[in-house]
Amino acid sequence: MGDLIDLVLLAMLAITALQMIFLKDLFAVVMLFGIYSFLSALIFINLDAVDVAFTEASVGAGISTVLMLGTLALTGRKEKKSSHSSILPLLVVCITGAALIYGTLDMPPFGHPNNPIHEHVAPRYIEESPKEIGLPNMVTSVLASYRGFDTLGETVVVFAALIGVLALLGVRRQEENDVPESGFKAHHVLHVVARFFIPLIILFALYVQFHGDFGPGGGFQAGVIAAAAFILYTLVFGLSRAFAVVGPKFLQALASIGVLLYASVGFFSMYKGGQFLDYSKLATDPIVGQHYGIIIIELGVGITVFAVMLSIFYAFGSQAERSNIQ
């Protein structure tokens, strides 16, 4: 049964991707990409990767699609006919594809429990992490503790994206006079619905943030969901009102603070005589220490991701407004 679902999903995935090549309407291409992401998320669930599916759905299908649509609003939705030949790209792609297929020839069999990856490093995560770290969700344990340095790096990547977008687009200063009317002022239904939904979304984000130790979820997903709440607010009530609620400068500071919070946990454990990011040293009982450490760094991650995603959306949004004025 599971295999059948997998096959159907994979087939749909392939069709979606192929369709993207031929469509010239970029709006449709972006929508197909959203679908593609969502289908991938479904496959991930089928393959037991619930955390990944959660992230893919919120980041891939959610934020990326929103940003792409924002870009399309500024650049136009039609792709023009390409003039250069497509033989060379096709050749490169075929060679790469052939290499990949050649590579799969000696691949360990799918799902077999005696594959090298299930025998070497992972058993410790599966068997020991509930004892060593005390969390039922092994993905969170590995992410935050065993490979905590990766996650710090990843938070910095997100921060670097903020720097990139700010350097390119910047965020328009708040000048009350020339802010045009944006958002859907006239749609009362939208207002009421949004007012009702936004607190719920934020509540859900908080749940995801703090429940990540036990079920799927964690800082990344929570940050993205919280940002989505504010994005909805911005779309409905306009940028200027959103700026009044959470200012862009404040968000930049927040993004920095998230990274620093994460790093400071590492420094504190150094101060306590452990290695960098050794949470066991944070409290007298190592398991309690691990728990503290993971909660704080997940919070740092959540803050940074929230602030960065919202800032990026602000930057895109103010560009759209600027082009409307001109």
């Binding site: 490093v121 995560y125 503790s145 490979r147 340095f149 990766d150 290695q275 960098f276 050794d278």
Partner: peptide, 13 residues
């Protein structure tokens, strides 16, 4: 060699 997070090599970074 420095084990980040205090986890020995193949498990930690």
């Amino acid at each position: 060699s420095y084990a980040v997070g205090g986890w020995p090599a193949p498990w930690g970074i």
